[in-house]
Amino acid sequence: MPHTTLSPIFTGLRVGLHALLLGLAGFAVARSFAVASPAAVWSLVVGVTFVTVYLLGVWAGHRRRGAQVVRRPPAIGWVAALTVLWALLTWLTPEGAFLVFPLFFLYLHVVPGWGGGVAIVLTTTYTIVALGLHVGFSVGGVIGPLVAAGVALLIGLAYRTLTREVDERERLLAELIQTQQQLAETERQQGALAERARLAREIHDTVAQGLSSIQMLLHAAERHTSGTATEYLGLARGTAADSLAETRQIIRELTPERLEDGLAAALRRLGREQADRTRVNIEVRAKDDVVLPMTFQTALLRIAQGALSNAVRHAAAQRIVVELTQGTDLYLSVVDDGRGFDVDAAGADPHGAGSFGLHAMRERVEQLDGHLVIASELGKGTRVTVRLPLTQLSEEDD
């Protein structure tokens, strides 16, 4: 079990169980010698064997936990050997019956399913019969083992429930941390891409436009001059042309690599990569004539990446269709045939482990003055649709 705030409690319970079992075994043997029982020597032999087998099993179990190996049959064989030795010790001395209480917890922990309960019933019956043969049958001799069995069952069930809750909490916490890290990384990449796109626009709108204007003016001046001045103007115009080419190269380098061929090509490349990695049938429908500012291309690509990741990781989809269309408005849709989910429940907790991706998509779309619609039904897949008004695109376009 991974380390949690409850790890000291579980460790304390295990140590307490070990101490109880070893103490009761020692008491049974010592009591046999104290009353000068004819079977005292045999009680010592069986008791030492019992403790030895128990300690060897605990040691082997600790090694297997460290190696992350689970082998149920050897553990059941170990418990069966302890049960046989306990039965012999109880037959030799009545105080051996006390060992049945810690054995109850071993049954519940090691024996799968209802087997642990069956083992408790059988050993409780044996304890009652053995005590009756040793000291005579009485109400206390019957009620005592029954009460001990009931208490062990309640404690064992509570322990199992607590363990399941801790495991579930650890799983959710790990998923939450992973999702937060993914969101932080996505936001960092988004910020870097947005800054690069902003610099590219600024250079295009200032330096590149200025150099282009200088070229035009120098070309016009060349037509109205002659002699040495024409040579200098030609040289100046050539220098401006070279600077403009270098500036455009800088703009291309600032453009995100995935989007250097446009959004449609980037979506097709993304679909191929996801399909190769996950073996999911992914179809991308996008025309290359959709022209968008870099800010919008970057945001739509990230939204498509998030929707594809959700469909593959959480929805267990087998077929996904990504479609980019342009009409009165621009639409990006991602449709999958996965298990679906409750959209209202996911939206009610935007900081939940399964809702960060949807929340990030919604924020990106809102930043672009667009509209996001998520339609899903359990067992019937999910459709994520982004609508961006073309009026907003024209305002942002170069």
Rank of each mutant, 00 (worst) to 15 (best):
P256M: 10
P256F: 12
E257H: 07
R258V: 13
R258C: 04
R258L: 11
R258Y: 01
R258H: 07
R258M: 04
R258F: 03
R258E: 12
L259F: 11
L259E: 10
L259K: 01
L259H: 10
L259T: 03
E260W: 08
E260V: 13
D261W: 02
D261T: 09
D261K: 12
D261N: 13
D261F: 03
D261Q: 15
G262L: 03
G262W: 05
G262V: 10
G262Q: 11
G262H: 06
L263P: 15
L263Q: 11
L263A: 12
L263G: 15
A264D: 09
A265Q: 11
A265R: 15
A266M: 02
A266H: 05
A266V: 04
L267T: 06
L267M: 02
L267N: 01
L267H: 03
L267I: 03
R268Q: 14
R268T: 09
R268C: 06
R268I: 04
R269W: 03
L270W: 01
L270T: 10
G271W: 04
G271N: 01
G271F: 06
R272P: 00
R272Y: 05
E273H: 06
Q274G: 00
A275N: 02
D276C: 04
D276S: 13
D276Q: 13
R277G: 00
T278M: 01
T278Y: 12
T278H: 14
T278I: 00
R279A: 14
V280M: 03
V280I: 14
V280D: 06
N281P: 00
I282M: 07
I282L: 11
I282G: 03
I282P: 04
E283S: 12
E283K: 13
E283V: 15
V284G: 05
V284H: 05
V284L: 04
R285P: 00
R285E: 14
A286D: 12
A286H: 08
K287A: 11
D288G: 11
